[in-house]
Write a protein that binds this DNA or RNA. Structure first.
Length: 915
RNA sequence: AGGCGCGUAGCUCAGCUGGUUAGAGCACCACGUUGACAUCGUGGGGGUCAGCGGUUCAAAUCCGCUCGUGCCUACCA
């Protein structure tokens, strides 16, 4: 009989009664950092064997400085799986990135410093952006560390740093070489507030609101007026201010009302207006001042009637105004019918109508208070149309505007030369890539499919902004040829560096830099390639390498800036669902074009962090909770525990009670481990063990639970893993097993030394296994407990629980105590559990506390259970602190209970003595 | 307007390929706990699994429709 090791003062010192997360967590953060525990090691055997797991998580916009528990949630969720993979023996490559180039940062700086593009020098502006970027990154890194993210901070990238710039420029040049890039002066989406071109993905639908429909009369040109035909047509439009940009009226070819009108022309209202006083004096009209009025005096511009299948005869009057440009429909008809172009908006959304002073210079869109949008240009146009008798009516009409997602301004369409990546011809191969990717959860693929199917624009990557990756391009002032930098000349900023050679076409040395910068997604779409240092790859780096997105092959130069093709394709991309159409889509495009492969094997899509009411947390809404506060109050582990409660792909509400639940779990884990170790002592038992049913049962259950947890992590369903483990721990391990074995250590007469040794082994190895399966979720307390309780007992102990082997192997074999599952142990253990439950119910019925010994348990049991009693009864009696059991009819006068088919009554010790 | 997700206890949510009496946590009630528990344990109340119809020996689960809700996409000049 081994002596139990009771709590001593030494034990209390080594193993404090309370768990202090506020001191423990920062200590381990520092320790892990000092050891370089999470560094990617290309020399490790796992890396050399090709067991590499590279992670591509979102580089947050550091400019935002608004981290909330929603961010903490999604990064934690990714990290659960990352820690699991590390324990499975993968060489984990987990870098953090910061997205600090582009429009989001510019918008932030503009708002913070109340400045605008154009009123500050390009250099000053960029300096401010860089400053905010540095400060933001610092704050973020602090939080990520306190959250326990196992990032290799040496590998951090920034999307404005030279390495990323080089990648973006190489990507550009590679696409030029592949014939994927075009410079075109197409009509493109345009933000009048930001004064830049946009891509389709930058546009979002606004709230539905009243956007009145205006009926406008177009007179038919007199010479074409035939007897019996009408003398005018009526169109309906929500954009009356664009009437003077009309280039055609369109109808459906089968529409009977217009069939006979083939060949006729209409007069465009207001185009006959001229400024009153200066009409005779000048030709160009550039000098009109305020107070001038227009008056009829010129010729009406005439536009044809065109026939187009896309016009819906049922809509409005069946006659549609085509102007340049109100919406994509206009562009389509403009293209098909080769129509004239009448541009009347400038880059800031102001009307350019020199002949109509009342309209000229007026803003098309003005953000009013609330969500209503009032347009001064529209109001003026309506007034003019009414004045000249062209406005036939206004009716209410609900629809929604397309907004620039960064500033919520309704987008316009402009024509200006831009760089485009042709993608519209790639829909099929891109859909094929989407199908080849492993989506977790699978239904998220639908979002991708729909986006690709609905693509309507090539990817415009030009932005008329300051803070972004420059195009490595100089234009020839002589012949307008675009001259590109060579691969060995990047990264380069043409605004700072003169063209390295004369124009390739005409030999001129008169070259000017491309002033535009690249779309921010041009860079962030390269994150898997940036991590692999693709821009530094030699020719043929991927040759002979499987791009099947299976396991990666080995061979790593270990210097940070060296090419690392073995990290590509990455193992997994983790991101939220709302950027499937942007980040995920663009990354797939790039990998398809650059490497003819997928960028990663798996994609894990997380949901949103919601507030208590179920609204998405955001800075703008002001409904966010600061994760640093939560960590301070409840610990990072508790916050992570909350995050682990989300079903993959589903949103999760932030409820403080759930974080408190995590804190409770930590306390329980601490106490249970501390309790267990009191009975183990300072070394493992040498006595051969003789496990009882309780030992066999709990070990068998544990093995099953480990299997469930493994299965959960393998499919990125961390919540299944944590729920299974937590339930086992609380219910089976604490409430049953630990209660059962107390008696083994308390009363030396009941159990022999082999049985005590069995309990001690179970405690040690069960605790070790539990700590390991909890470790991905609760990295801090598991590390602390591992070092306090387990590591000193093991002969060959891992330096950290986070590099300890996962307790299950690929083939499902579990290494806990030899992985033995005893036949019938789970079934018989369930009987034991029920028998204990029945007695506990009887105690409750008789108001008898669990501490009071029982003299006798009277039991009436089903036939099938009776034969199990020899195996079950000792643990049963021990758990119930009962002297004996007697089968048969139950005495009437004792506290009794029924659980299923089990009927029991109990007699406390004193009562028996008195009887 | 299409697509996807969700609708299960007062609240927040699990319930994978259909199979005992539908579960957990929180909240609530009662009882017990000076021997691991800044508490914990035991027991209890509480559900038309949104609704209707279908398939099946068997449906929270599969199918159809309807309603509500959220998101994605498209938007109608």
């Amino acid at each position: 009989m081994a002596e139990p090791t009771p709590a001593t003062s030494t034990f209390d010192q080594d193993f404090p009664k309370n768990y202090e997360h506020a001191t423990v967590e920062p200590r381990w953060t520092a320790s892990w950092e000092a050891q370089g525990l999470y560094r990617f090691d290309p020399e490790s055997s796992a890396a050399k064997a090709g067991r590499v797991y590279a992670i591509d998580t979102p580089p947050p916009y550091v400019s935002a400085a608004h981290l909330h528990t929603g961010h903490a949630m999604s990064y934690s969720q990714a990290e659960f799986v990352i820690r699991y993979k590390r324990m499975r023996g993968h060489a984990v490559f987990y870098p953090m990135g910061f997205d600090d180039n582009g429009l989001p940062t510019e918008r932030y700086v503009e708002q913070k410093y109340k400045i605008q593009k154009g009123k500050i020098t390009r250099k000053d502006f960029i300096d401010l952006c860089l400053k905010e970027t540095r400060e933001g990154a610092e704050v973020y890194q602090q939080l990520w560390k306190s959250l326990g993210l196992s990032v290799d901070w040496r590998m951090t990238y920034s999307t404005i740093a030279p390495r990323a710039v080089k990648h973006a420029q190489r990507s550009f040049l590679d696409l030029v070489a592949k014939g994927r890039l075009e410079r075109r002066a197409d009509p493109i989406l345009w933000c009048p507030t930001c004064a830049t071109a946009l891509a389709q993905a930058d546009v979002e639908a606004g709230e539905e609101q009243n956007r009145p429909m205006h009926a406008v009369r177009f007179d038919i040109v007199t010479s074409a007026h035939l007897a019996g035909l009408p003398d005018h047509g009526i169109i309906e439009t929500t954009r009356p201010e664009l009437v003077t940009a009309c280039v055609a009226l369109a109808c459906h070819p089968e529409d009977g009302r217009f069939k006979n009108l083939s060949g006729i022309h209409f007069q465009v209202p207001l185009t006959n207006l001229r400024p009153e006083r200066l009409r005779a004096d000048t030709d160009d009209g550039a000098v009109f001042g305020d107070g001038l009025l227009s008056a009829p005096g010129g010729e009406f511009r005439q536009v044809p009637l065109i026939f187009d299948e896309s016009v819906d005869p049922e809509f409005g009057t069946g006659l549609m105004m085509v102007c340049t440009f109100g919406d994509p429909e206009d562009i389509a008809k403009w293209r098909t019918h080769k129509l004239d172009t009448q541009l009347i908006l400038d880059a800031h959304g102001r009307m350019v109508t020199p002949n109509i002073p009342e309209l000229n210079g007026k803003r098309v869109h003005v953000q009013e208070k609330g969500s209503a949008i009032y347009s001064e240009a529209r109001a003026a146009a309506v007034e003019l149309l009414r004045q000249y008798g062209h406005l036939l009516g206004i009716r209410d009409n609900a629809s929604r505007a397309s907004l620039h997602e960064r500033c919520s301004t309704p987008v316009e369409i402009q024509v200006a030369p831009q760089w485009f990546i042709r993608v519209l011809d790639l829909k099929e191969p891109l859909l094929e890539r989407g199908r080849a990717l492993n989506w977790y959860p699978p239904f998220m693929r639908e979002r991708y499919e729909q986006w690709v199917e609905n693509l309507r624009w090539d990817w415009n990557i030009s932005r008329q902004r300051f803070y972004g990756v420059p195009f490595p391009v100089w234009f020839c002032n002589g012949c307008e040829t675009a001259n590109f930098a060579e691969l060995d000349e990047i990264p380069v900023d043409p605004l700072m560096q003169a063209a390295p050679r004369p124009c390739s076409a005409c030999g001129s040395t008169d070259l000017r830099p491309e002033p535009d910068v690249m779309d921010t997604w041009m860079t962030s779409s390269l994150t898997p390639l940036i991590n692999a240092n693709w821009a530094n790859w030699p020719q043929g780096a991927l040759q002979g390498k499987s791009l099947e997105c299976k396991e990666n092959s080995g061979e790593f130069p270990d210097i940070r800036d060296q090419p690392r093709p073995a990290l590509y394709p990455a193992g997994v991309r983790v991101q939220a669902h709302e950027i499937i159409r942007t980040w995920l889509f663009y990354t797939v495009v790039k990998s398809h074009l650059h490497t003819d492969s997928l960028p990663w094997r798996d994609v894990m899509i997380s949901g949103w962090g919601l507030d208590r009411q179920g609204k998405k947390m955001s800075k703008r809404a002001g409904n966010f909770v600061d994760p640093a506060e939560v960590i301070g109050k409840y610990s990072a582990d508790a916050l992570r525990y909350w995050a682990a409660g989300a079903t993959l792909g589903q949103d999760l509400r932030y409820l403080e009670d759930d974080v408190k639940g995590g804190k409770r779990l930590l306390t329980k884990l601490w106490n249970a481990t501390r309790f267990a170790m009191q009975y183990v002592g300072t070394s493992l038992p040498t006595q051969a063990e003789e496990p009882t049913l309780a030992d066999k049962w709990v070990r068998s259950e544990l093995i099953e639970v480990i299997g469930q947890a493994t299965q959960g992590f393998e499919t990125y369903e961390y919540n299944r893993a944590v729920r299974a483990v937590e339930r086992f721990f609380w219910d089976t391990w604490c409430d049953h097993y630990l209660e059962i074995i107390k008696e083994r250590f308390r009363d030396g007469s009941r159990f022999n030394a082999g049985e005590v040794a069995a309990a001690q082994n179970t405690l040690v190895f069960g605790t070790y296994a539990l700590l390991r399966v909890f470790a991905p979720i609760l990295p801090f307390i598991t590390e602390e407990l591992y070092h306090k309780a387990i590591k000193p007992l093991l002969a060959q102990s891992p330096v950290s629980i986070h590099v300890a082997p996962w307790p299950a192997a690929d083939d499902g074999q579990v290494d806990v105590l030899g992985g033995t599952i005893w036949p019938d142990a789970q079934e018989h253990g369930a009987v034991l559990r029920d028998l204990i439950g029945a007695v506990r119910a009887a105690r409750t019925a008789g108001k008898i506390g669990g501490g009071r010994p029982l003299a006798m348990i009277y039991a009436q049991l089903p036939e099938a259970i009776v034969p199990l009693l020899p195996e079950v009864s000792r643990d049963w009696l021990a758990a119930c602190r009962a002297e004996g059991v007697q089968l048969g009819a139950l005495p009437d006068d004792l506290p009794a209970a029924t659980l299923g088919e089990l009927h029991v009554a109990i007699a406390v010790a004193e009562l028996v003595e008195q009887a």
